[in-house]
């Protein structure tokens, strides 16, 4: 392992993390809910009374974020290397996996660890380990 200092962005990443934490804090204190994106989106697929509006609003907020950001600053560069086929496979796995595991990076990783949940800690360790292993296999064993 060697650290890629040229791409290391400690301050913006920390600031972004604080904003994410602030959003999760606002959401739990005002709405009484966990800001878990996979759960919020997944809940739309089994709609029930009074559950649709706030879920759509949260998703709408996320989708609107690039526009809001671009009003204040230039959007940072981004790159998606995955091919179309790989994106589809990855998307299905993320959708299926997060619903079976009842959470993703936000629900288990940010909110779960913040509320000191052992279940979320185990889930976070599992998907991090699996993510590290997948990138290792794809970049260093197959390629």
């Amino acid at each position: 392992m060697h650290i890629d200092w040229s791409h290391f962005t400690p301050w913006t990443s920390l600031a972004g993390g604080l904003l994410i934490g602030l959003a999760a804090a606002l959401f739990v204190l005002c709405n009484g809910r966990i800001a878990g994106i996979s759960g919020i989106v997944g809940g739309l697929l089994r709609p029930s009374r009074g559950e649709v509006g706030w879920r759509l609003a949260f998703v709408f907020g996320l989708v609107l974020a690039p526009l809001a950001y671009s009003l204040v600053a230039v959007l940072p560069a981004r790159r998606i290397d995955a091919s179309i086929t790989l994106l589809i496979v990855a998307g299905v796995l993320v959708g299926l996996g997060t619903r079976y595991g009842a959470g993703c990076t936000s629900g288990h990783g940010v909110c779960g660890l913040s509320r000191l949940s052992p279940r979320s800690l185990v889930a976070t360790l599992a998907f991090m380990a699996s993510g590290f292993a997948t990138v290792f296999i794809v970049r260093h064993l197959i390629a």
Binding site: G91, V94, G97, T124
Partner: peptide, 16 residues
């Protein structure tokens, strides 16, 4: 579920 999610995350670099 978490392991499946991690594989998808590692393939594309995208979470929900």
């Amino acid at each position: 579920g978490s392991v499946l999610f991690g594989i998808g995350w590692g393939l594309a670099g995208i979470c929900p």
